[in-house]
């Protein structure tokens, strides 16, 4: 198992999310049993974390940046997304599957991250979320992908 890390500073632009996520996923060499976790669980969750950071954390301010740190250590894939906002309390987000919320357009991002990832942690300030996915021992970044 080779430990690797990728670190980016992204502009606060929603249109760059897709390319950033595809780049990260493409740098993960997959074995069959974890392919779906990367293709689906990780990809969707990373989009959610980045869009939350840009829209709610940074308030769509194009002058602000979002920091993305991806680490692979001991079979755990970790992505930390940090914005430059004041943070929020994730405990105050209502359940989007409750009957009174099911017809709401928004409010499913954090819910999906928690459902799709093995662990989701916020820092005390609430402006940095860490996503954790447990992978098999054969999961690695290619050597040339180190940033």
């Amino acid at each position: 198992m080779i430990d690797r890390e990728l670190i980016f500073e992204l502009p606060n632009d929603l249109h760059c999310i897709e390319d950033a996520v595809e780049f990260i996923v493409s740098r993960c060499s997959t074995c069959q049993d974890v392919a779906r976790k990367l293709r689906f669980n990780f990809r969707v969750s990373l989009v959610e974390a980045l869009s939350n950071a840009m829209i709610y954390g940074n308030g769509r301010d194009p002058a602000k940046r979002v920091r993305l740190e991806v680490h692979l250590r001991s079979g755990r894939l970790t992505a930390r997304v940090t914005d430059q906002g004041h943070g929020f309390n994730p405990l105050r987000v209502p359940d989007p599957t409750a009957p009174e919320n099911i017809m709401e357009e928004g409010g499913r991002g954090l819910f999906l991250m928690k459902k799709l990832m093995d662990e989701v942690h916020y820092n005390e300030r609430g402006n940095s979320v860490t996503l954790v996915l447990n992978l098999s021992a054969s999961q690695t970044f290619p050597d040339q992908a180190t940033a």
Binding site: V44, V47, E48, E104, R108
Partner: peptide, 9 residues
């Protein structure tokens, strides 16, 4: 794939 914004739309 679709994210929560796509579902919301």
């Amino acid at each position: 794939y679709i994210d929560s914004s796509g579902l919301g739309v």
